[in-house]
């Protein structure tokens, strides 16, 4: 970082971390399927999704490092922070479990992500809007694909339906966090950088409602929301295990490149 770096902007830094940590953690989770998906077509499709998300991570964490002005690169932020410094939603760190669970998690995230990125295209911060405009095309496709699979498996055999309903019951309590604003969200929204987190709920509900109806799945009748992911206050224990795998190389061999 040069001495001419912009004045530190903690709220914008946090916001970029939240966006980048979501895509980083989910991208890694999805990449865990590489070589394990039920059919090769899905294996490749999941790898493509993971790579899209990691690509978006480079942009968001790259911007975070730039905003922070402390000389940290996207790689530094990805590989040299511990769990409590991560700012991703709890939803994306939930383990993969079975294929249906993975795709339902993907669909729930994609639906929020698409609403968020669509709004971010009009951000008052040009660097944010630029990233959103690139990512929104990728994410439109992610949602098409994950929604199709959720519908196919939900409205499929008794076995696949039961697994999808179980996945929905497990994941639903992790949906609400994205829509509950904290002080950072409020400041960022007031500055026109991002939409008010709560206003995205209506669009999300409409999208997900239509998908779940077609999938013959019923969300639990509760808006209870686990929180603590995007603030970093209370991640689930699964994040630490994931980071242990993801960060091993840079921790064991600092600065290793190839």
């Amino acid at each position: 970082m040069t001495a001419t770096a912009a004045a530190p902007d903690p709220a914008l830094f946090e916001f970029c971390l939240r966006m980048g940590d979501n895509t980083l953690v989910l991208g890694h989770r999805v990449s865990e399927w590489c070589g394990h998906a039920p059919v090769i077509e899905e294996d490749i499709a999941l790898a493509n999704t993971a790579l899209d998300l990691i690509g978006q991570t480079q942009l968001w964490l790259g911007l975070a490092g730039e905003v922070e002005g402390a000389g940290r690169s996207a790689d530094d932020l990805a590989f040299l922070r511990d769990a409590w410094d991560f700012r991703n939603l709890l939803l994306v760190e939930r383990p993969n479990r079975d294929f249906g669970h993975t795709l339902l998690r993907q669909c729930l995230f994609d639906a929020w992500h698409l609403e968020m990125l669509t709004a971010l295209c009009g951000s008052s911060e040009p660097r944010v809007s630029e990233i959103a405009q690139k990512a929104v095309k990728e994410v439109s496709y992610h949602l098409e694909r994950s929604a199709d699979t959720v519908i196919g498996l939900g409205d499929g055999t008794p076995e696949s339906h039961a697994r999808m309903q179980d996945a929905l019951d497990r994941l639903w309590p992790y949906v609400g966090e994205a829509f509950l604003p904290d002080a950072i969200d409020t400041e960022i929204a007031a500055r026109g950088i991002a939409p008010d987190a709560a206003t995205l709920r209506a669009g999300f509900d409409a999208r997900i409602g239509a998908i779940l109806a077609e999938a013959t799945l019923s969300p639990p009748d509760s808006r209870f929301a686990h929180q603590g992911g995007k603030t970093g206050v209370r991640h689930t224990e699964d994040l630490g295990h994931m980071l242990a795998t993801m960060q091993f190389l840079q921790r064991a061999y600092p600065g290793a490149t190839w």
Binding site: E41, I44, N48, R145, G152
Partner: peptide, 20 residues
């Protein structure tokens, strides 16, 4: 060629397998 449950998914799979 590839496997897919229906035409829509075949196009998506083709997009992912052959147009990366």
């Amino acid at each position: 060629s590839l496997h897919a449950p229906d035409a829509d998914m075949a196009i998506r799979n083709a997009r992912d397998v052959y147009t990366r």
